[in-house]
Design a protein around this nucleic acid. Sequence first.
RNA 1: GGGUAGGUUGAGCAGGUGGUGAGCUCCGCUGACUGUAGAUCAGCCGUCUUCGACUGUGGGGGUUCGAUUCCCUCCCUGCCCA
Length: 403
Amino acid sequence: MSAAPPEPIERPSDRRTGGRAPFEILVPPPADGSTRARLGRLKLAHGVVETPQFMPVGTNASVKALDPSDIRTVGASIILANTYHLYLRPGHERIARLGGLHQFMAWDGPILTDSGGFQVVSLGDLRVVDDDGVTFRSHLDGSLHRFTPEHAVAVQEALGADIAVAFDQPVPPGSSSRAIVADATARTHRWAERCLAAHGRTDQALFGIVQGGLEPDLRADSTRFIASLPFDGICFGGLAGDETADERNSVLDLAVPLLDGDPRVRYLMGLGTPLDMLEAVHRGVDLFDSVLPARVARNGQLWVPGGRLNLRNQRFLDDPAPIQADCPCLACRHFSRAYIAHLFRARELLAYRLATCHNLTFTLDFMARIRTALRAGVFPQSLPELRLRADRMSASEATVQSA
RNA sequence: GGGUAGGUUGAGCAGGUGGUGAGCUCCGCUGACUGUAGAUCAGCCGUCUUCGACUGUGGGGGUUCGAUUCCCUCCCUGCCCA
């Protein structure tokens, strides 16, 4: 850890300093090295994002089950949308004709578009990767398509999000040989340069993605390489998969210090649970996204301080308490666990909205608590308290605790 | 009262014309989900000492080596006719 915390630098003409996504560090990490966590502020075309921050995922230009008003109310300041999905349907050119992604989905806050690289992995055998790009079949109709770095950038420029992301080749952690990881990482590096060369929109930031899997030297090399390029932000990809928390934290302990003194925002793609994010913030990560809180909410799992509730369990059918007593969300303000448990059984659409509102409120409130602790300068000391709020325990324990 | 079609594991069904009915869909129970092909998926879902065993085709009785199947009788349900 460097002796002196990095000072925020503003040189808009230099992309490396965040010309299109200037990042200001409001509270730098303490000099004693007790944590790398920092409080920051990311300035984007459609607004300011305080960090550490979580981005709800709206793959199809919609945070599933919510409307923009809900998205605001749960506390989101930036959301993620997906290039691959919107390219296939309804088409990036159509969205561009209709005024761009913000106008299309009636969300005037910041948006980040994922590049579609993740789908290279998640679509499994529907694709073939070569050095120039990826040929894949649509999961919708089986039609054949091709993404290159240049095309992925063009699609994202058409969509017009505040932040575009380089087209990469993620490798699932733990399931690939070193040779495959090295190959995918090298290709990601070549594609990163092509994305930068292809990107022209001056009102849109472009973030680069570090790969390298769980191989320490590859991860370090990738961090140095991506950091050497004039991206507006640094993403860590290929994590939040099937690796253990220890493996993930080891990667961060290795990689983030290599960015000391770098004024750009750091984004860990795909995380996650509150506890996972707390550990990553502690290690110097500023930005997160994950489908997890919204997806598990739709499947009946509600997050509460210290644990989680599976509302499909029959004991909740008679539980008159709100999901979480001190929660300001739509679900907790008006409805009982019994009612929402009923809605899930009846497959009523309101169940998905209420559950999603709650889990996103919980997640975003948790990030806000982290920021509050950072602002107050008590972050390393407040870790146990935050951990207690984020820790998982059995649902029955959580029920007893809240009763 | 007469006729007719039925009665299968919580519900709805399949099957079964003397030779091993635990098969399906709901419902229910539990778990999983981390840059969203996911309001999804997986396991369980008669009992038990659970890689196996036992019980179970409305009740009772009969024929038979053996009955869900054939015979007798009773009960219940739908429909039609009185």
